[in-house]
Amino acid sequence: MITYRDARTIDGPALSAMARRSFTETFGTLYRQSDLAAFLDQAFGANGLAAQLSEPDFAIRLALADDQIIGFVKMGPVTFPGEWRPDAIELYQFYVLSPWHGSGVAQEMMAWALEHARSHGAREVILSVYVDNHRAHRFYERYGFRDIGRIAFRVGETVDDDNLMRLVL
């Protein structure tokens, strides 16, 4: 049985481990080991994802199976360079472990993310997605997200292209 709840600070280590696993299973073959390790430490180390659990600007929703984190979505203020509407919100990370792809977890978490955005007065949701992550592109497009540009995404010393996407609520 899959359950959903808001993340708590005590979830930090388990959430970071799940995020590392998910990123590595999805993108691990694209990068040199040193680049991947640097990114994982920066994004999911002690000062990354786990530290944001206690920051009031961020909201993180978890999907759990047998009390194990199998997915999460993180929302917060827009940090991409450029001019953004004051009522925009960013969807930072949206990860589901591969055994649960196609199980409805992603749809449930997207429903939460969009409701969270609306209930906090957001009029648009902004996200970035790796240009070659076609599965994620199709998923976001089903919800009405549209490409609005490109942005550099750094993984260690490697710089990738991400598409910026926007959904007007």
Rank of each mutant, 00 (worst) to 15 (best):
F72A: 10
F145I: 05
L169Q: 07
T158Y: 05
E83F: 06
L91S: 00
Y31S: 01
L114V: 04
L49V: 08
A122G: 02
L164E: 02
L167D: 03
Q93W: 07
E83K: 13
R166K: 15
H116F: 10
I2E: 06
A106P: 10
D147L: 10
F27R: 01
Y95F: 15
H101Q: 05
R150M: 11
G149V: 02
P13N: 00
L15H: 10
E157R: 15
V73L: 00
D57N: 13
I89W: 04
V96W: 09
T24I: 02
V73D: 00
L15Y: 12
R5V: 06
I2T: 13
D160L: 10
L36A: 05
D132H: 12
D11T: 04
N47F: 04
G121F: 01
R150F: 09
I89Q: 07
K74Y: 01
Y143F: 14
G156V: 11
A88N: 09
F153C: 07
M110H: 10
D87Y: 09
E83M: 08
S119D: 15
L169V: 04
Q52E: 15
H120R: 09
G82M: 02
G104S: 05
D6V: 05
D147Y: 09
E25T: 12
A7I: 00
P77S: 14
G104A: 05
L62V: 01
G156T: 03
D57W: 08
M1G: 15
Q107E: 13
I2R: 06
A152S: 14
S103Y: 07
S22A: 15
Q33S: 15
G28N: 04
E141N: 08
W100T: 06
F23Y: 06
E25P: 00
M109C: 11
V159M: 12
R8W: 11
T3D: 14
A59I: 00
A17Q: 14
A14H: 14
S22E: 04
R61Q: 15
A113W: 08
E157M: 09
A111F: 02
V131I: 10
P81A: 02
T26Y: 01
V131N: 03
E141K: 06
V129T: 07
A88M: 08
I126E: 12
D87R: 12
A46T: 13
R21T: 14
V125I: 14
D57G: 13
I60R: 02
E124H: 05
A88Y: 06
F139K: 06
L30I: 04
E108C: 12
G144E: 03
A117T: 04
D11P: 08
A17H: 11
V78Y: 09
M1K: 12
R8Y: 12
V159T: 15
R61F: 11
W84L: 11
R85M: 13
R85P: 14
I70H: 07
S16H: 02
R5A: 03
R146C: 11
G144D: 07
D41G: 13
F23L: 00
E25S: 12
G121A: 03
W100E: 13
V105E: 06
D162P: 02
A17Y: 04
H116Y: 14
A37R: 07
Y31C: 02
A88P: 11
Q68E: 14
R146A: 15
